[in-house]
Structures are given as C-alpha cells and as structure tokens.
C-alpha cells in the first residue's frame, strides 16, 4: 500500500507539479502511471484505464455506484485518492468473470433480474462479492444478534435481513432491492 511496494527497478519519483507515479494492480495486471494527486481511484479507473464499469453516482461516498474491491475489501472508489493506493490490488466489475464464464453473483443478478437501468449494478455486484467475504470472515453487522457465533469463531449466516443491512450502502433508484436480495440468497445456497 505504499511506495515500498514498487518493483525493485522502479525508483519512487519525487513529487513534482502535484503528480506522482504509482503502480496499481488492476484486474490482475500491474500498471504504472502518473496520477494527479487530486484524482480518485474511481476517476483513474474510468479515465486512465478506460474501465467504466465502476460508476460515479455521487462522487461523495453516498451511493456505492463506484464500489470496487481493493485488496479484497469493498470500498467506495470515489473516496480513495489514487496516489494513496500505490501497490494496491484492485478488482473491478470487469475483473470478476472468468473469461466467458460469469462470476456466480453476476449470473444470479441476470437470472433474478436484479437490475433495471444497470447503473448501480457494477457497484452492487462488487459490494455483494465483498460482503460475502466479510460475512465469511465473521464480521458482524448492525442486525447480527449479540449471541450469533460470529467473529473469528465462524462465519455469519446471511439471512435476508443480514443481506439487506449489509447491502444498504449501495443505492438503487430503480428499486431492484428485492431481486438483489434474492440473487445474493441464490449465491449463498
């Protein structure tokens, strides 16, 4: 996550003109590029990598449309500055499928019609992938009961209430929520 993660052959460049060089591992490929210090990961993905799957719904961490996985965890990429992510591993919605074969969450979204306009969908899907991992790792949510055997002891069982709570950082103005919950339930089964 810092400049020490640079390859041995890459010297950290001095900060000049408010730009820096970083290396981002996006969907498996390392790319070294110079970024404006004001530029978010979202803007970098969309404008420099031409990975426009991640969407800008608000640019303020309020909607989740820009959700991607950074080092395996879901984040609002509009709230991360690219310059601070040197060495990070980033997975976007474009990086989830295995060739022609869709990720199980993607397949479930198609089957359940868990999308309408599709603008929130990349964020919902990345968020769901991250969320499943969090629950598997035992992270409790607001609705996890105090007696649940969560934590390092074991994964949290995801019922519909848990899914709804954990997916509430991703807004969908088309109101696809009921189908999104069903899709995620399908993946869990």
């Amino acid at each position: 996550m810092d400049s020490l993660a640079l390859g041995a052959d890459l010297e950290p460049e001095p900060v000049v003109d408010e730009h820096s060089t970083v290396t981002l591992h996006v969907n498996g490929d390392p790319t070294t590029l110079t970024v404006d210090h004001r530029t978010t990961v979202l803007e970098t993905l969309r404008e420099s990598f031409e990975l426009t799957g991640a969407k800008k719904g608000c640019d303020h961490g309020q909607c989740g449309a820009c959700t991607v996985l950074v080092d395996g965890r879901r984040v609002n990429s509009c709230l991360l500055l690219a310059v601070a992510q040197d060495g990070a591993t980033i997975t976007t919605v474009e990086g989830l499928a295995d060739g022609e074969s869709l990720h199980p969450v993607q397949r479930a979204f198609v089957e359940r019609d868990a999308l309408q306009c599709g603008f929130c969908t990349p964020g919902q899907i990345c968020s769901a992938v991250g969320m499943l991992r969090e629950a598997a790792d035992g992270h409790p949510s607001h609705v996890t009961g105090p007696d649940t055997a969560a934590g390092p002891a074991g994964p949290v069982a995801l019922d519909a209430d848990e899914i709804r709570e954990r997916m509430s950082g991703n807004l969908c103005r088309c109101g696809a929520y009921p189908r999104i919950v069903e899709a995620i339930e399908d993946v869990i089964e």
Partner: peptide, 14 residues
C-alpha cells in the same frame, strides 16, 4: 443483462 453485470454497457459519461 450480461453487459450490465460485466460493466461493459456504455452510458453517456462512459
């Protein structure tokens, strides 16, 4: 649906 779940559907700002 496939384009939308894989992020390849292009919107005006894409």
């Amino acid at each position: 649906a496939r384009e939308k779940v894989t992020g390849t559907a292009r919107y005006a700002a894409d």
